[in-house]
Amino acid sequence: MRRTGFAKAECPVARALDAIGDWWSLLIVRDAFDGLRRFGEFQKNLGIAKGMLTTRLHKLVETGVLEQVAASDGSAYQEYALTKRGRDLFPVVVSLRQWGEAHLYARGEAHSMLLDGAGQPVGQLVLPSRTGRALTWSDTRVRKAGARRR
Rank of each mutant, 00 (worst) to 15 (best):
10 E>Q: 01
13 V>L: 15
135 L>I: 06
124 Q>L: 10
63 T>Y: 01
83 T>A: 14
12 P>T: 12
8 K>A: 10
18 D>S: 05
150 R>N: 07
42 F>C: 04
89 L>V: 10
75 S>K: 03
29 V>C: 08
122 V>L: 14
54 T>R: 10
101 E>P: 02
31 D>W: 03
25 S>G: 08
94 V>R: 06
70 A>V: 01
18 D>T: 00
9 A>I: 00
115 L>D: 08
66 L>C: 07
110 A>V: 13
84 K>S: 15
3 R>Q: 13
116 D>F: 04
134 A>C: 06
50 K>T: 12
25 S>K: 08
134 A>Y: 02
122 V>C: 04
100 G>V: 04
131 T>E: 15
69 V>M: 11
28 I>Y: 03
15 R>N: 07
136 T>L: 01
26 L>C: 03
143 R>Y: 01
67 E>R: 14
140 T>Y: 00
146 G>H: 03
63 T>I: 01
95 S>Q: 12
30 R>N: 14
139 D>C: 02
20 I>E: 04
54 T>M: 08
10 E>F: 00
140 T>I: 06
103 H>Q: 13
48 I>C: 05
104 L>W: 10
83 T>V: 13
131 T>Y: 06
71 A>Q: 06
92 V>T: 11
46 L>Q: 12
12 P>N: 11
69 V>P: 03
139 D>G: 03
119 G>L: 09
82 L>P: 05
48 I>H: 04
49 A>N: 13
7 A>T: 04
121 P>E: 09
48 I>M: 08
13 V>T: 15
44 K>F: 00
85 R>C: 12
29 V>T: 09
118 A>L: 14
68 Q>S: 14
73 D>C: 04
150 R>G: 11
94 V>Y: 02
56 R>E: 04
27 L>S: 09
55 T>K: 11
41 E>C: 10
35 G>I: 05
144 K>C: 12
82 L>F: 10
119 G>F: 07
110 A>N: 13
82 L>Q: 11
101 E>K: 05
36 L>H: 11
34 D>I: 02
43 Q>D: 07
129 S>I: 09
57 L>Y: 02
16 A>K: 07
22 D>R: 07
